[in-house]
């Protein structure tokens, strides 16, 4: 992808900026200039409003990629998902920091800002949204294997104020 094209798409890729038709209320991501659902498309021209997606969503469908795209060799196997947002649009994105076996339809996710790809060792680095498992899923932290040291200090009695 050229630098110019990627740069033009920065607002949606960085900030999940979509659009909403003020005639019929349909939401779109990436943003559209004309509403495809309104019976007369032309009437929606100039009536599309910016819509900020919250980044929340749940896995609608997903696939596990074993044969990576260029630049993703270090992440195999990785999960590519369709994520249904509460605002309406379905987004495509990688689900990160997760084992493929942990992903299921309905898994709640939250957009996170990540490196998408690098143009080799000397080129531009592209950034944008991916998805991480939402905190509401309550994943327990896993203490590193073989850790033979005291557990992190928990909440305890507080010292008297001096």
């Amino acid at each position: 992808m050229t630098i110019a094209r990627f740069w033009r798409e920065t607002p949606q890729r960085y900030n999940l900026g979509g659009s909403r038709c003020s005639s019929c209320g349909s939401a779109f991501f990436p943003p559209r200039a004309v509403c495809p659902t309104c019976p007369e498309h032309r009437r929606s021209l100039g009536k599309m409003e910016p819509l900020q997606l919250s980044g929340e969503g749940e896995v609608y469908s997903f696939t596990v990629v074993h044969d990576p795209a260029e630049g993703f060799e270090m992440q195999v196997p990785y999960v590519l998902a369709l994520v249904k947002t509460p605002e309406g649009p379905i987004l495509t994105g990688q689900v990160v920091d997760v084992l493929p076996a942990e992903v299921h339809v309905g898994l709640r996710v939250q957009a996170t800002f990540r490196k998408l790809r690098e143009e080799g060792k000397s080129g531009v680095i592209h950034y944008g949204y991916k998805f991480a498992v939402a905190r509401e899923e309550g994943r327990e932290p896993v203490a590193p294997e073989g850790e033979s040291v005291p557990e992190p200090r928990r909440e305890g009695p507080r010292p008297a104020r001096t």
Binding site: V96, T112, F113, K115, K130, V149
Partner: peptide
Amino acid sequence: EAMGKGLGVFRKSVPAPDEDTITISTEALR
């Protein structure tokens, strides 16, 4: 293990391959 005890470090965080100072800074500021 002895090295860790000597340093007082029990474990350390590791960024995923798609994380760097830009992504960490962005998440913290958001």
